[in-house]
C-alpha cells in the first residue's frame, strides 16, 4: 500500500519535472523579445480600448508610441494630458499639451421645433435611414434620432432624450474619443474646446438650405442671416452655405451673438442667468428647452 503511494508520488513528480524542463527549454528557445516599455506604457493608458486614438486598442497604441520617434502627434483623448505626460516620461520624449475637448450635438431639431413630415420604418439605425432618404423631417441635415452615437459610446456619455428625440452629452463622462463623431452619418456631432465650467456657445444647427426652406423645416434653424457675424467682436464667426459657424479658438464666450440670433440657433449653455432682460419671453422658453436637451 505505502509502496504504491510512494511510486505514484515519485513517478508523477518525475513526470512533472521532465515536463517543466521541456517547457523551460521551449520558452527559452522561442522567446520573443518585446520592449518592456510597451507594458509600462500600456499600464499608464486608461485601458478602455475605445479606439479614440485611431488604434484598435490600448496595446496597439502603446506599441505605436514606443516605436514612434516623435510622439507629439499621438494623443489619448480619454486619458488626456496627464496620461500623455506620464507616457512621455516613460519614453523620455516630449509631448505637446492639447486642449481638452467635449462632444457637442449641433442640432436642436426636437419634436417641437422640427415637424415630422414622414414616418421612417425600418432598422433603427441612423446609417441605414440616412442611406434611404433625408430623414423624417424636411431638414435633411439634422439629427435622425436613431441613436447610432449612443450605440458606439463606451463611456455612457451620450443618451437619447425621449422628449426631444435628440441625443445629449453628459460632459463629465465625455472623453472626446470621437466615436460618436464618426458614427453620425450627418456629421452633426463636433468635438469642441472644453471651456471653464463646461460653458458652451455654438451654432446648434447644420442646415445648409436657403433661409426660407431652413426656417420652414425647423423653427430653430440657422438661416444664414449674417447678424452674428457682424456683431462678433472677435471675428470668431464664419458664414458658409447659409450656415454660421463659431470657431472655438477665437470665441471668448461673450454671448453677443446669442442675443442677435433671430431663430435662437445659437446655443448658450452653462451660464448663470442674465441680469438684463433684453430677451423676450419666447426666447427664454426656447432657451430653457435647449438647455434641457443639453444637460
Amino acid at each position: 500500500m505505502t509502496t504504491t503511494v510512494l511510486y505514484t508520488i515519485l513517478s508523477l513528480s518525475g513526470l512533472g519535472a521532465v515536463a517543466a524542463m521541456i517547457l523551460y527549454a521551449a520558452a527559452q528557445k522561442f522567446k520573443v523579445y518585446e520592449d518592456p516599455r510597451i507594458d509600462q506604457v500600456e499600464e499608464a493608458l486608461p485601458g478602455a480600448n475605445c479606439g479614440g486614438c485611431g488604434y484598435p486598442g490600448c496595446r496597439q497604441f502603446a506599441e505605436a508610441l514606443v516605436k514612434a520617434d516623435d510622439i507629439s502627434d499621438y494623443y489619448c483623448p480619454v486619458g488626456g494630458n496627464d496620461t500623455m505626460k506620464e507616457v512621455a516620461q516613460i519614453l523620455g520624449r516630449e509631448v505637446a499639451e492639447q486642449e481638452p475637448k467635449v462632444a457637442v450635438v449641433r442640432c436642436n431639431g426636437s419634436f417641437q421645433n422640427r415637424k415630422r413630415t414622414s414616418i421612417y420604418e425600418g432598422p433603427s439605425s441612423c446609417a441605414i435611414e440616412a442611406s434611404l432618404f433625408g430623414g423624417e423631417t424636411d431638414c435633411q441635415y439634422g439629427c435622425l434620432g436613431k441613436g447610432d452615437c449612443v450605440e458606439v459610446c463606451d463611456f455612457e456619455a451620450i443618451f437619447m432624450n425621449e422628449e426631444t428625440g435628440l441625443p445629449y452629452v453628459i460632459d463629465d463622462n465625455c472623453t472626446a474619443c470621437g466615436a460618436c463623431v464618426d458614427a453620425c452619418p450627418n456629421n452633426i456631432i463636433e468635438l469642441r474646446k472644453r471651456y471653464k465650467k463646461d460653458r458652451k456657445i455654438y451654432v446648434s444647427c447644420v442646415n445648409e438650405d436657403k433661409p426660407a426652406a431652413a426656417k420652414k423645416a425647423c423653427q430653430v434653424a440657422c438661416i444664414g442671416c449674417n447678424k452674428c457675424v457682424k456683431v462678433c467682436p472677435f471675428d470668431a464667426i464664419t458664414l458658409e452655405n447659409n450656415l454660421a459657424y463659431i470657431i472655438p479658438d477665437k470665441c471668448k464666450l461673450c454671448r453677443k451673438c446669442v442675443d442677435v440670433c433671430p431663430t435662437n440657433a445659437i446655443a448658450e449653455i452653462g451660464f448663470p442667468p442674465r441680469r438684463n432682460k433684453r430677451r423676450n419671453a419666447k426666447k427664454e422658453s426656447a432657451d430653457q428647452e435647449q438647455s434641457k436637451n443639453q444637460s
Binding site: 415630422r116 413630415t117 414616418i119 421612417y120 420604418e121 425600418g122 432598422p123 441605414i128 434611404l132 423624417e136
Partner: peptide, 10 residues
C-alpha cells in the same frame, strides 16, 4: 394635395 404623413421604409 393631401396632408397624409407617408411612411418611408426601405
Amino acid at each position: 394635395m393631401s396632408n397624409n404623413v407617408l411612411t418611408v421604409s426601405p
